[in-house]
Design a protein around this nucleic acid. Structure first.
Lengths: 121, 121
DNA sequence: TTGAAATTTAAGAATAGTTCCTACTCTTGA
DNA sequence: TCAAGAGTAGGAACTATTCTTAAATTTCAA
C-alpha cells in the first residue's frame, strides 16, 4: 500500500459521487501534485482486483469507482449520466415491475467460465 | 434503408456469434468492398436506435451486436470473452442462486431519468 | 547502516474503439 | 432531366486507457 494508492483509496471511500478515474486523478493531484494519470489507473486496477474498490462500467463513458458496500447496483440517468445507487431489495422490486414508469432500459452482463475454458483449467 | 444498412442488418440477423463492429465490417466488405468503417458504425447506431438491432456493451472490449429476440441476457466468459445467451427464465434462476458455482460476477446497469432531468422535460 | 535488487512511480507515447469531418456520390421527385 | 437532400467513403480526430522507460523509492540481507 504505497502513499499514492492510499490517497486514491481514501478519495473513493470519502466520495458519494462514484468518481471517474479523471475526477480521482484531479483530487489526488491536490494532495500530491506529482502523481500521474497512469499511476491512478494502475492503482485503481489493483484496488479493484483486491476487492477494496468496485468498478462500475458505464457504456460509452468513463468507468466510475465505488466503495464495496452492501450489495447494490446502479441507476444511470440517460440524460446527464449521473449514477445513483439502488439497494438489492429495491432492485428486485424494480426488476419485478419492469414495465415500470421510469426504467428506460438495462444492461445485465454476467461473468462465468464457458465450458471450453472451464475444461482447460 | 440503404444497401449498406441492409447488408449490415442481414449480417447480424444471420449470425449467432454476437459479432463485433469489426467483424461486421469484415463481412460487409466481402459483399461490398468499398464500404467504410464509419458507415458500419453509423448504421449500427441507427439500427440500434430504431430497435432493429440490439447492442451488447462489453466492458473493456468492443461492443457486440445481436438481433432483438425474446428477452434474453448475456453470459461472457471471463477467460476467452465468448458471449452466450441466457433466457429470461434461466436468468431468474441464475439470479436466485447467485451463490452459484460458475457465476464469477455480474454487472447490472439500469437506465432512467433522474428526478432533476425528469423535471426538465 | 549500507547498498544491491526489486518494486513502484512519473511522464508521456502508444493503442484501440469509436466518432467526426469533408468532399463526393447516389437517390428522389418535380 | 436535374436540383436538393440524404447517405457514403476515407481518413483524421478524439478519448479513455494501457504500455514503456528511466528514475525514484522501498526492502531487507549483510
Amino acid at each position: 500500500m504505497t502513499r499514492q494508492r492510499k490517497i486514491i483509496k481514501d478519495i473513493i471511500y470519502a466520495s458519494y459521487e462514484h468518481p471517474t478515474a479523471d475526477a480521482i486523478f484531479a483530487l489526488a493531484k491536490k494532495k500530491m501534485p506529482s502523481i500521474a494519470v497512469g499511476t491512478v489507473y494502475r492503482n485503481l486496477s489493483l484496488l479493484v482486483e483486491s476487492g477494496e474498490v468496485r468498478k462500475i462500467d458505464v457504456p460509452n463513458s468513463p468507468s466510475r469507482y465505488d466503495r464495496p458496500q452492501i450489495p447494490h447496483e446502479h441507476l444511470i440517468c440517460k440524460n446527464c449520466g449521473k449514477v445513483a445507487d439502488v439497494g438489492a431489495i429495491e432492485l428486485i422490486e424494480v426488476l419485478k415491475e419492469k414495465t415500470g414508469e421510469d426504467i428506460i432500459g438495462y444492461n445485465l452482463t454476467m461473468y462465468y467460465l464457458c465450458p471450453k475454458c472451464k475444461s482447460l483449467k
